[in-house]
Simulated assay, not measured.
Amino acid sequence: MAGDKTNGAAEPVFLIFGKSGWIGGLLQEELKKQGAKFHLADARMEDRSAVVADIEKYKPTHVLNAAGLTGRPNVDWCETHKLETIRANVIGCLTLADVCNQRGIHMTYYGTGCIFHYDDDFPVNSGKGFKESDKPNFTGSYYSHTKAIVEDLIKQYDNVLTLRVRMPIIADLTYPRNFITKIIKYDKVINIPNSMTVLPELLPMSIEMAKRGLTGIMNFTNPGAVSHNEILEMYKEYVDPEFTWSNFSVEEQAKVIVAPRSNNLLDTARIEGEFPELLPIKESLRKYVFEPAAAKKDEVYKAVKEMRGR
């Protein structure tokens, strides 16, 4: 596999695009922890000459692409910033993949699994998950639309591993982009089981995937699905016994958001084949999120109360 230097004498050298982003920051922490050699790219990915300059300057064996636009405060932003979304999520991503391909460098692309939605062929609670080979069926948001397009195009590059991230979760229950933080802040949530990505467990595996030279598409989630209510019940169990919330329907939710949201279960046979130790979603949540939260319950309780303004 072009770009996989780990079987030879060369030490892997990682180059991170998206250095100021959430996943980019977490990758830096993980690579430091591993004692790995890495650099931070300065180029905007849609600027091909700048990308080439970074590649030539740092001479990576592996590129980690954690850049792109998800929108602030959420994906609704992309509905009114379509050109910016195209530049970052389509042109930039393809430019970086192309430059890496021409130089035989492995690229890991942190994409999204929010390009699928439950339907008649994949019903809720059926246990049937979308596979890596399935064609995306959700383009309800412009964000998901661009991500589905770039996934379809980038799979032609034999040096790229695309990781489908979903509803990413970390241990910090006050970090604004943490999926759990988002639903804790709401008075009302929908209650649909979804595949999710527990980053403390999965991100280190993504670095190992890069070292192994894996390519193609990988559903990058923990096995199984968990509902919003089940997560909030865990929060109630581990942190705040008095915590309350209520549910509303997808139709009611649609009245307070601009773009529809994706809900799905992704098949995890491929990632489980590579990492048999990967925990099911509920076990992973307990180990990597709620048990650490319970260990500092008073601190977490106070921080969440302040965040919610109550």
Rank of each mutant, 00 (worst) to 15 (best):
K59R: 15
P241G: 02
N7S: 08
T6K: 05
E208N: 13
F130I: 01
T108N: 12
S206H: 08
T85F: 02
V304A: 01
P241V: 06
K188E: 08
E79L: 09
G35A: 07
K305D: 04
K287L: 11
L15V: 07
L94I: 11
V124H: 00
G129K: 03
A66H: 09
E237N: 12
V150M: 10
N263F: 15
T70S: 11
P200M: 10
T85Y: 02
V124D: 07
A295N: 13
V304P: 00
S49F: 03
E237L: 09
F290S: 04
A303H: 01
A10K: 14
A148I: 11
T244H: 12
T215S: 14
A294H: 03
G216F: 04
Y175C: 04
H117R: 04
T174M: 04
N191T: 11
I16T: 10
I192P: 05
T244W: 06
V90Y: 06
T80S: 09
Y142C: 01
M107I: 15
L161C: 10
Y186T: 04
P204K: 06
P276V: 02
G71L: 02
L279S: 10
K185C: 10
L203T: 06
I207Y: 01
M218E: 07
V258C: 05
D267T: 05
L96S: 07
D4F: 06
E30G: 00
E151W: 00
P200R: 14
I190R: 04
K302I: 08
F179K: 00
D47M: 05
Q253N: 05
V165N: 08
L265F: 08
I190P: 00
P12D: 08
D187P: 06
E252G: 01
Y238M: 11
A293V: 03
C100V: 07
P136C: 05
D119Q: 12
M167D: 11
S49V: 12
I149N: 02
V226E: 03
P241K: 10
I231T: 02
A10R: 14
Y143R: 04
I115Y: 03
K305W: 09
G216A: 06
T95K: 09
P276W: 02
N125H: 09
Q28G: 10
Q102E: 14
D47Q: 05
E237W: 03
P12R: 04
K32D: 09
Q102M: 04
L279Q: 11
H106K: 10
Y142Q: 03
A41P: 05
E272N: 15
K302E: 15
M209W: 04
F179T: 14
P223Y: 08
D42M: 06
H62M: 07
N159F: 11
G309N: 15
T139C: 03
Y235D: 07
N89I: 08
